[in-house]
Design a protein around this nucleic acid. Sequence first.
DNA 1: CGAGGGAATTTTACGAGTAAAACACATGTT
DNA 2: AACATGTGTTTTACTCGTAAAATTCCCTCG
Lengths: 206, 206
Amino acid sequence: MTATNGGHTPADDTAGTGHAGRPANGTRAGTAPGHAPAADRDTVAVVVRQWRAVHPELDTGPMEVIGRINRCAALLQQAEDAPLRRAGLSRPEFDLLGALRRTGHELTPGELVRETFSSGAAVTKRLKQLTERGLVERRGDARDRRVAHVRLTDAGRDLVDGILPEQLAYETSVLSVLAPEGQGELAGLLAELLGRLEGRTGAVRA
Amino acid sequence: MTATNGGHTPADDTAGTGHAGRPANGTRAGTAPGHAPAADRDTVAVVVRQWRAVHPELDTGPMEVIGRINRCAALLQQAEDAPLRRAGLSRPEFDLLGALRRTGHELTPGELVRETFSSGAAVTKRLKQLTERGLVERRGDARDRRVAHVRLTDAGRDLVDGILPEQLAYETSVLSVLAPEGQGELAGLLAELLGRLEGRTGAVRA
DNA sequence: CGAGGGAATTTTACGAGTAAAACACATGTT
DNA sequence: AACATGTGTTTTACTCGTAAAATTCCCTCG
């Protein structure tokens, strides 16, 4: 979207929360080559400054990172929803189809729940709709009559294969502001962080 | 949460989409000092591998970055919702209160919409609830009777001030997997990316 | 001054997700 | 074999957010 979509962010944040912060006040934030000082280049910087003015005693450092992650995610999702809506799909629906496509084989509703990180009820509803639209098919299991097996129809597969390149092309264009090494660094740092977050499920006490 | 919360991620992704990717197959993903190769340290790496197996011709690079941003955001939000729920607040509600707290002055509903990145209708509903709970107060404008001015009550201010340190402490603990320089780098890279995303509203065609 | 145009906010109708309960079935136990 | 227990999936009741329409009010212009 960013052009097509109406422009409503579902789960944003950053703004209200407090997510922004400052990496040490000395840690040069500008990582890029010859870029502006990025005083308040983005919304997060502004928010952090506000918090610091009100609560000078708090270390707002983490906000710089987490606030930006949240905001980037929100904007990216909004942007990438456009090609999906054009195809008449919501993101969660595409995620479901994508899971089937990338694993290459049938999945049960339960497996879709895990692959998709959504609730069982949500998966049930989506499957119902996607089945009606002819994008997926279900088949009962011979052994265990509780379980079902879901697979993509040809139409479903084609739809995913048609959208995916668009998504990747858009993502590539957005990331092009970063040098290739920058992209690698970013991926690496995020992988570390994600490793901790996914690590022992819920080990980090909130 | 990550321990308290039920465990339902609202707006996740990564899994189904395709967000993951690989920074060049040579770009060492491990950015940290002496860490494991991170072969499939996280979910995103697994997903990317699946996509590459199915569509070897596509450049899945951007997925490594964007997939991780999305997944990190989802997990962070889930984790940080715990202290909020304990206080009986949803994240959007806290965002609204936070906007009032950090700006330090009254805001109109319209301003809250902008600060909070949510729809007008949503703000209206939240204000209604928060007012009933005695966390905010409204006052009509003398000049223009269409506008209202919203301010935090003492209870509202205290609530925000009580929660914020918890949030920051949690964020600090999560980010502690990264060295301080790593955090700075991450903040800087994300700032660059965010700059582009926020830049000219919707300039990047999807 | 009275109408038109526009802005701020709220209301309405509805779609989508969640938690918890309900189902349907399989399996280990005695 | 009958049952308690546990798992896979769906159903139910409800909440929340959205889009679009409706309200209320300001301001300018003829």
